[in-house]
Design a protein around this nucleic acid. Structure first.
Lengths: 114, 114
DNA sequence: CCTGGTACCTTGTATAACGATGTACGAGGT
DNA sequence: ACCTCGTACATCGTTATACAAGGTACCAGG
């Protein structure tokens, strides 16, 4: 029974993780992948691996929602910093609004328990 | 840009639709598929087709979260009524709690805008 | 006889999360 | 020299799901 619940949480994260990352990116102003993994780990529902985040960031870049900037590091490999584009800001607002709407429907149905 | 947003909303619905239906089922006590499509259409984010709902209900039945009851109708084909099982009630509570947790993380990140 | 509403179901396509795996760099220990 | 650890990026295969499109069947009214 727990088996099905964990499978469900995976499905819920689809798309929801995208808004989470975009919001984190806007609040940080600028951040690189490896850092996002660690900072989001503290947030509820923000527990993701690198195999999840890097493809996500790549998609966002291809869609023009974020822009990247390579910065060499003294200790370790170069970091790829991400920040929102104007289109990304606009899209994020639309996403947040959409979530508000959908969740309003959820809360309404949830309240009416028998 | 709207193209990407509509694709995103599809991904958000994955899994989220399942909680919506389960909550609707609990608040109604008992309901059949065709009726759920119409009643959920009024709720924000509850716009779904039959090709979405029927496979969803089948999955829920296979997982033991809902039970079915066939009732013949005077006008039209027989209706398959669905209602939550005890396991379904328990799982639904866990889902609602999980959503509460995840959405708390979303709201926290969303509040901190630059 | 045909249309339209009710009611169920299946198939194919596209998309995303995630674990596993791989690459590469620098610092510190032995 | 060698190894290990932490940093940092990336890709692949599996699995699960929404959705449109299409299909079946029943009943009533024109």
């Amino acid at each position: 029974m727990d088996d099905h619940l964990t499978a469900w949480t995976v499905q819920v994260r689809k798309g929801l993780l995208e808004v989470l990352v975009l919001n984190a990116l806007r609040s940080a102003g600028e951040a690189y992948g490896y850092d996002l993994v660690r900072s989001l780990a503290g947030h509820p529902g923000g527990d993701l691996g690198e195999g999840t985040l890097y493809p996500l960031l790549s998609r966002l870049r291809l869609q023009g929602l974020v822009a990247t900037r390579l910065v060499e590091s003294d200790a370790g490999p170069a970091r790829k910093y991400y920040r929102l584009t104007p289109a990304g800001e606009h899209t994020l607002d639309a996403m947040n609004d959409h979530l508000d709407t959908v969740l309003a429907g959820w809360k309404r149905l949830r309240a009416r328990r028998s």
